[in-house]
Nucleic acid binder design. Structure first.
Lengths: 338, 338
DNA sequence: CCTCCTCGTGGAATCGATTACACGAGGGAT
DNA sequence: ATCCCTCGTGTAATCGATTCCACGAGGAGG
């Protein structure tokens, strides 16, 4: 592959001049410029990004470490991050942590070894050692979706509190009183916050949230299935199951179907994170939608601000309730209303 | 960040010795080794992958350019590729072409600029200029899922021919005779092959495939909707719609629902590419499943073989039919059987 | 006509690693 | 005792860019 030296030779100038043309530095004569450009064309020369990065100490690359690429929410997030980054002249390298701290660490280290300019992380757990090192080590970093308390890093996320309250209001209005939740891992902020919001909203309606109605999931479909089976085995099973992410909702749906029960007639279902498929499930699923695209864009903006020396901003965007048919349609009265 | 010089100084040896320890070269005394290791530990030194790549002319990175990350089929493919690559000590940079040749070109060029060791591509169209240059330029390359005729690059893909025949047999057995297909872009191999396979299988049953029953889609949901509406507007609409990918099936489902029609009672639906959500749609959708994970692994294997100087192998794996309920359940006879 | 500035250019240092080559010390064979 | 080989180590070249500095030419101003 042709190097800058070959171009210089071909154009009859020094490498310095070639470099100047390529980075359109002002002091290059028109003549030299055309000769260099012609040589570049003739040789099909493309600058070696590796060499350039070594010298300039910047790669124009962002790292994105997410918990699970197979989760449509994160896929969409990754896509909007890549788009926003590209618009700003950055590339993105995605690392999939699969909800495993060790894998998260592997990716963070690999990305750091590659000297990425900045890191976007949706931390899998309370913070793997490598991640904390990176944060303290001064690597420009922004948390997205989830974050770690006590680490001084900007956070870009959605606040689902209001939407969860809307959901509980909706469920209450439909006459449901026994509400259960499939929670995410307590070590993740999204895992614990969603339970908290749910509990608080229920408290507003004077509905208790017994421990038996809090199932511990891990944001994967299989855990949704397992937890839901547990709920259905209870002497007094819940009337509603609220899954803290879309994959666990999928698992819940499986479990419910396996019992030959129907949604929403026998049991209602709602989920955090809205995805295109929820429109087409049987029945369409009521969900809390995050502004995923905007989240990705805001995260990139914050990170690039930080990289380029401007003060980065934490951003919190509201999520909103999308009512479909999985919680019942008409105001049904299961029990006497007060 | 600490460099190899700092480590050398700290350990009281030369940089050459440090490098030898790091790459566990045999001729280093035990004493020097322990001193270097201690210095590495003390400084939290991590080798600069950029510098190393410049010198060794290899990045231990693979590029993967796919057509659409939001398509679960490609997401899954990307994931299995990353896993397989990681197992072999390679990282993967994913480029999302969004079915756009210009974006595909952008990613190929960016990846080449970064001097990735090899490229995995699922070409969006007949072959963007940059991609063809890369192929001819000797960059190790493997096509996955789709390929380009006349370019000498190994191909790893699934053959759906037999599964399509099984599907047509299934539909025929259910009494369906008017079968329509939503095709993918003719410029992609998967786009044209699936139509061909469908046509041939129908010919075996003596069923014609009129042009009116071949709709031109682009592998995106919206095109599935549009084409399906066209089918439904025909004087004699088809009894079955077969979508050449999962997103177009989603669009088809939308269009059918919008007319207030029901699947499979009013019209049957089947899709190429099986995804987890198809189990949960209303009704569950009959689909042709590709061995996606195995495809990703085989592609990485072929590419790494090529990179490391072993002869790479093209691989073709069979797809298989997964019957669900979207084409009708019991053998219904709509018209007299011959 | 001389001086000073500006402009275009090239030489060479530099980034952080790997690695060919040289060299000295020590041990075994003769 | 001499020679030779092996082993451990260091010096320095190298990868492909960017960029500081020096230098010569040419124009403007006195």
């Amino acid at each position: 592959m042709a190097s800058i030296k070959d171009v210089a030779a071909e154009a009859g100038v020094s490498v310095a001049t070639v470099s100047r043309v390529l980075n359109d530095h002002p002091s290059v004569s028109a003549d030299a410029r055309t000769r260099v450009l012609a040589a570049v064309q003739a040789l099909g020369y493309r600058p070696n990004a590796v060499a350039r990065s070594l010298r300039t100490d910047q790669t124009r690359t962002l790292g994105l470490v997410i918990s699970d690429v197979l989760n449509p929410y994160f896929t969409k997030l990754a896509r909007s991050v890549e788009e926003a980054a590209r618009a700003l002249g950055y590339s993105v390298i995605i690392g999939n942590a699969d909800e495993r701290p060790d894998l998260q660490d592997h990716h963070v280290r690999t990305l750091l070894d590659r000297r990425i300019d900045g890191l976007l992380v949706s931390p899998t757990d309370g913070g793997s050692p490598g991640m904390l090192d990176a944060a303290r080590g001064g690597t420009p970093m922004v948390f997205v979706d989830r974050w770690i308390a006590g680490v001084d890093v900007p956070v870009v996320r959605a606040d689902g509190r209001a939407a969860v309250r809307d959901l509980v209001a909706h469920l209450h209005g439909l006459g449901h009183r026994r509400l259960a939740i499939i929670a995410g891992p307590a070590a993740t902020t999204t895992g614990s916050e969603r339970v908290e919001a749910f509990r608080e909203a229920m408290a507003e309606y004077g509905i208790p949230l017994p421990d038996a109605y809090i199932g511990q999931g891990d944001f994967q479909a299989e855990s949704g299935r397992r937890v839901t089976e547990g709920f259905l085995d209870l002497a007094e099973p819940p009337e509603v199951v609220f899954a803290a992410d879309n994959l666990m909702a999928l698992g819940a749906l499986d479990a419910i179907r396996a019992r030959g029960m129907r949604v929403p007639d026998d049991i209602a279902l709602a989920a955090f994170d809205d995805i295109p498929w929820f429109v087409h499930t049987d029945p369409p699923i009521t969900a809390i939608a995050q502004p995923t695209g905007e989240l990705g864009r805001a995260a990139v903006r914050a990170l690039v601000d930080r990289i380029e020396g401007r003060p980065p901003q934490s951003v919190t965007l509201p999520a909103r309730l999308v009512v479909r048919r999985s919680c019942g349609e008409s105001p049904v009265t299961n029990r006497s209303q007060s």
